[in-house]
Design a protein around this nucleic acid. Sequence first.
DNA 1: GTCAATAGTAAGTGTGCACTTACATTTGGA
DNA 2: TCCAAATGTAAGTGCACACTTACTATTGAC
Lengths: 199, 199
Amino acid sequence: MSRPNQSPERRLELVPVLAHTFAEFGYRRTTTAELGERCGVRENILYRLWPDKRAMFVAALDYVYQLSEKTWNELLARADDRVSPAELILDYESTHQGEFGLYRIVFAGLSETDDPEIAEAMRRLYGRFQHFVRKQVKAHHDGVAVPAVTDPGLVAWAIVGLGTVANIGRELGLLSVRARKRLVGEVGRALLRDWADEG
Amino acid sequence: MSRPNQSPERRLELVPVLAHTFAEFGYRRTTTAELGERCGVRENILYRLWPDKRAMFVAALDYVYQLSEKTWNELLARADDRVSPAELILDYESTHQGEFGLYRIVFAGLSETDDPEIAEAMRRLYGRFQHFVRKQVKAHHDGVAVPAVTDPGLVAWAIVGLGTVANIGRELGLLSVRARKRLVGEVGRALLRDWADEG
DNA sequence: GTCAATAGTAAGTGTGCACTTACATTTGGA
DNA sequence: TCCAAATGTAAGTGCACACTTACTATTGAC
């Protein structure tokens, strides 16, 4: 034997670059030549690390979730007991949401769901997002007498929907920063609010 | 002169076919050859009716909104005063939402927003959706003492978000028919509910 | 130092597809 | 019945781009 295989490390280095490139151009309009250039390598180097362009995209999708989860977990680690985790994430997302433009990968993925592997990656992404949010909503509900919506799973989907539509509004220039903040903040809180409280 | 130009009529005939084809394959994976075949004409016929593929897509996007608006207006025309128009639309969407798969065109459009004309068409689409829903929410608020969220515009965006995430859940097989119905129905009603009522 | 595997360079290649061109046929107003 | 415009057919064309091949240079365990 000679020279240890450093492919895994190399993949970890390059995935963020892939993700940002796919976010910028979408799936189809991203060329493997462009990916190589951004990564500072020739195309065939990428083809040694991943079997095809599709696999590069799937890797980028997985990276997007991991990055979000990491950010949220760091956020929750700094939580005190005055504000519930669910509210903390809402507040965070209402200001920082989408700031790296990575949501555009998700949009790209949504029109490539005929590919089973991409569909699977999208399922992982949305499934995990919803699962994560649901956990926080459930915890939040422990301190709530009469939740506006009883099923935490439904609330989690609705919150994911808020984030999604906020990103659509941003992408199309239909929602200002301020409007997006109010959308996620006010509607999100209405979904979490205690129905037993005063109006 | 001889033979009147029937292009406008022909366009009206063909647009639904374009829309269903784009919905099936997305923007990039739809070939002009396929469009021609589905329309039962040669490619260059399509190029006489629209300048390029992009224009065909934009026409399909506009068609999608027109179809939805038509459906909703017919629905509202049958309304009585026991249920508010906003609730009527929620109930309708919670069962029939996305049934023709045309939402997939919207997903396709979301990853083509770098094209100014497509972006503009998407803005029209989402802008009109939100505007339409907002009108119904506003009317609904007239009969409500303390709305859960005061700004009808925000509520409208949230409802559009519910529809969007429900379609994503359907597309990825993450939400069953039943779950989608509950998502749009229960969360939608929570957003419309009167905060002054009993819990 | 040797050798085998890794890492990198440079130049294809084949195909899919948006769009075009050249030509034939039909239509309907005068 | 003429003829100009509309409608249709058939066969390109050129380019973008995913993926490959052939080759060179580096690394590091022995």
